[in-house]
Amino acid sequence: MSMTTSSSSAFKLICLLHSAVALSSGALMMFDMKGIYTFTHGIETATKLLGSSPHDQLLIRTSDSFSGLLLFAIGFLLFMVSFVKDKSFQSFFAKGCTVLHVIVAMWRFWFERRVEDLAWDWLRQTVGDILLGLSWVFFLVYSWREKYD
């Protein structure tokens, strides 16, 4: 296998893995948010997060559905990008995804941990964001190693 092929394969694999996570998470957010809240936060917190009045519940369900749709669209975009063969684009895209994951981790650290019902969960999610960002960093290091060897 040539050097350029292995780097492209790594990019495709990372994109497809991130795509699978985004597509499945987005679909679950659109159609089964109560199940996700119960699984990730427990029954008591899930009840609080789903709202107390019918109006609040409708707003929260609508917001979760749109967030899930956005995540699903991101997953579809990642799937399409996984087939791009241009090395400079792959590097640019990986850098952008790394920055995005760092920003999301910072958001969780600065804001989400202050929400009382989510305060215990922010660390686990921040570690997840950092690990997803590291997958792109590993791709960048791998492609730089190939470039300069």
Rank of each mutant, 00 (worst) to 15 (best):
A22H: 11
V99N: 09
F89M: 14
D32Y: 14
V102D: 11
G35Q: 14
F138Y: 10
A27G: 10
S2N: 06
G96A: 06
H55M: 07
T98M: 12
Q57I: 04
A105K: 04
S135P: 02
V99Q: 12
Q90F: 04
S24N: 01
L140S: 15
D117C: 06
C97K: 06
M33W: 10
L13Y: 01
P54I: 06
L28N: 09
R61F: 08
L58T: 15
S135H: 04
L59E: 08
W120M: 10
V81A: 09
M33Q: 12
R124A: 09
M33F: 11
F31H: 12
S135W: 09
V127L: 14
I43Q: 15
L100F: 15
P54H: 05
W122V: 09
M29L: 10
F109T: 13
D117R: 04
T62P: 01
D117A: 08
G75V: 03
A119C: 08
G26N: 02
I14H: 04
S135R: 06
G26R: 02
D64H: 09
V99C: 15
F83Y: 13
M29G: 03
A119S: 15
G26T: 05
M1W: 00
K12S: 07
G68T: 12
I36Q: 08
L71W: 03
L123R: 12
T62S: 15
S52C: 13
K147S: 12
A46F: 11
S67A: 08
F89Q: 08
T62H: 15
V102M: 15
L58G: 04
Y37S: 06
T45Y: 00
Q125T: 05
S24I: 12
T4D: 12
E146G: 05
K12R: 11
M33D: 04
A94Q: 02
D121G: 03
F76R: 08
D56H: 14
W122L: 11
V99E: 11
T40R: 08
T126S: 13
T45H: 01
H101N: 13
S67T: 06
D117L: 05
L50C: 13
L49H: 02
L78V: 07
M3D: 01
S52K: 15
G128P: 01
K95W: 12
F39T: 06
K87H: 05
M3G: 01
E116M: 11
L49M: 14
E112N: 07
K85G: 00
W122Y: 15
A46V: 07
S8A: 11
F39W: 05
W136P: 02
F76T: 14
F139C: 07
I14C: 07
L71Y: 00
